[in-house]
Computed example of a mutant assay.
Amino acid sequence: MMNGLQQTFTLAWRSLVQVRRNPWELGDYSIQPILFLVLFLYVFGGAIAGSPDDYLEFVLPGVIVMNMLFVTVYVGHGLNTDLTRGVFDRFRALPIPRWAPLAGRILADVVKQALCIGLLLAVGYLLGFRLATSLMHLLGMILLVLVFAVAFSWVMVLVGVMARDPEHVQLFGFTALFPVTFVSSAFVPVATMPEWLQGFVYANPVSLLADAARALLNGGPAAAPALGSLLWALGIALVFAPLSVYALNRRLARG
């Protein structure tokens, strides 16, 4: 187990170092979320909250959650790239556990997620956002989002294993995430939506996570949405982690 963990850290470092050779990926982690935050704030802020300043405390947690989901797509993208280029064939010849490359990818994603959250919080502060709770609440929000990111990364691992090439991973990943992300409470109050849609929005795990993050940053009841988010994360991990390992074993067995 200790050797497997050490190999996981080594493979995670490999995934992080690859960013230097692909600076566009770093742009997706940094420039894209800032653009989303600024566009949502100054384009929709006046219509939704009356002013950009009032909308900032509502939309910042939503953008953090949205960006977390989108960044997980690169876990599947990188994994599929390794599979299609034969890197996993080389891993099979090494004395490492089969789960180490998967765990390494996810661990590297956690580091990238933490950097993205810190960047968005810093930009939000420059735009006028101020923490209304405490440092412990802030750390709790970051930890909650990272836990959900780890769980949801297994979904994209499965997509990366099953997809034919990296382009299909991105196509399927972003296409599936857009409706789940935007049909939620991440960017607008649920009360403004049609009644027939509100039931889905309330049950959407993205809504629960956005509400929990918003409460931990701005104040309010956070226990119920945070617990719901953790239960969703646990359920996603229990379903998709075994499926991902099984699908990987089948793909490698087929050669």
Rank of each mutant, 00 (worst) to 15 (best):
N3W: 10
Q7P: 02
T8M: 15
F9V: 15
T10H: 13
R14L: 13
R14P: 05
Q18P: 01
R21Q: 09
E25I: 15
E25C: 13
L26P: 10
I34H: 09
L37P: 10
A49E: 07
Y55H: 13
I64K: 09
M66F: 14
V71R: 02
N80W: 02
T81P: 01
R90F: 05
F91M: 07
R92L: 15
L94R: 11
P95D: 07
R98D: 13
P101V: 08
R105L: 03
L107K: 07
D109G: 02
V111Q: 01
I117W: 03
L119I: 00
L121D: 01
A122I: 10
Y125I: 12
Y125E: 10
G128Y: 04
F129S: 01
A132D: 11
S134L: 12
G140V: 11
M141T: 11
L146H: 01
V147C: 01
W154M: 04
V161F: 04
D165N: 12
P166A: 06
F172M: 13
F174I: 13
T175V: 14
A176Q: 06
L177I: 10
T181C: 04
F182H: 04
S184F: 02
V190H: 00
E195V: 12
E195Y: 03
W196S: 12
Q198R: 15
Q198T: 09
G199W: 14
P205I: 09
V206S: 03
V206F: 03
L208V: 10
L209A: 08
L209D: 06
L209M: 09
D211T: 12
A212P: 05
A212I: 06
R214C: 09
N218R: 10
A224K: 03
L230D: 02
L238K: 08
A241E: 03
S244H: 06
S244E: 05
Y246W: 15
L248F: 12
R250H: 14
R251K: 15
R251W: 12
L252R: 14
R254Q: 09
R254M: 07
R254H: 05
